[in-house]
Amino acid sequence: MSFLAARRRHPAAIVLVLLLGLVVTGGLYTALAPKDAKAATATADDVKAGKDLFLANCASCHGTNANGTAAGPSLVGVGAAAVDFQVGTGRMPLTQPGVQAQRNKVTMDATETKQLAAYVASLGPGPAVPATEYTNGNGNIAKGGELFRVNCAMCHNFAGSGGALTRGKFAPSLRNIEGKHIYEAMLTGPQSMPVFNDTNLSPQDKNDVIAYLHNVDNEANAGGHNLGNLGPVSEGMFAWTIGIGLLIGAAVWLGRKAA
């Protein structure tokens, strides 16, 4: 703690305190804000409102009947889970075309997302938004870790830091993602990601994977700063810059004549 005390007047300290405050407030809000108990059954009104939202925000790419166009795939049969994932993570509506839709600012609130999902679900049978009992992350961390290493780590990296795919596509970082969205991604296989249906990874398996990822988010760094959990590349970069830099700095000081 002497390290902290010594730096309490450092100019960066106030920034850090502010940041910390923001993070804590945000975290508390997320923890305490009222949540939907479960994806409630959709009413006809929801479907109707969802259709309006769809026509306003999605139809230009997915077609007025959601049958797909050259710009976007058909949404018939993708289910509510796909909508909840794509819209809930801000990937859709797409702000700018690119090799892949990226996590973005969420533009629709929970109600709108639900209505849109209800409309898309009404187009054809598809996976529904999962129940919270399988997305809360109360699974077996160790089992989840093993499943993660077999099924996910090759693209998303051992700690879910993300990884490169071909031609500019990439597997995104999985850090600090809501359990529901992790679940929905496995279930629906968005974009490049393959599908992990319930016969491949059972709902409990999926919750184990979520438990593992949440543990990665929450566990203390056992050995200090984790350098982004990217493996030897960031370690090598650290050794070649800060590490050897400090040592050479000491050597220069040692070789210079004292005043």
Binding site: R149, A153, H156, F158, G163, G231, V233, A239
Partner: peptide
């Protein structure tokens, strides 16, 4: 296997 499988630098 993990993405980013590299040897030490």
């Amino acid at each position: 296997v993990t993405a980013g499988s590299q040897p030490d630098w």
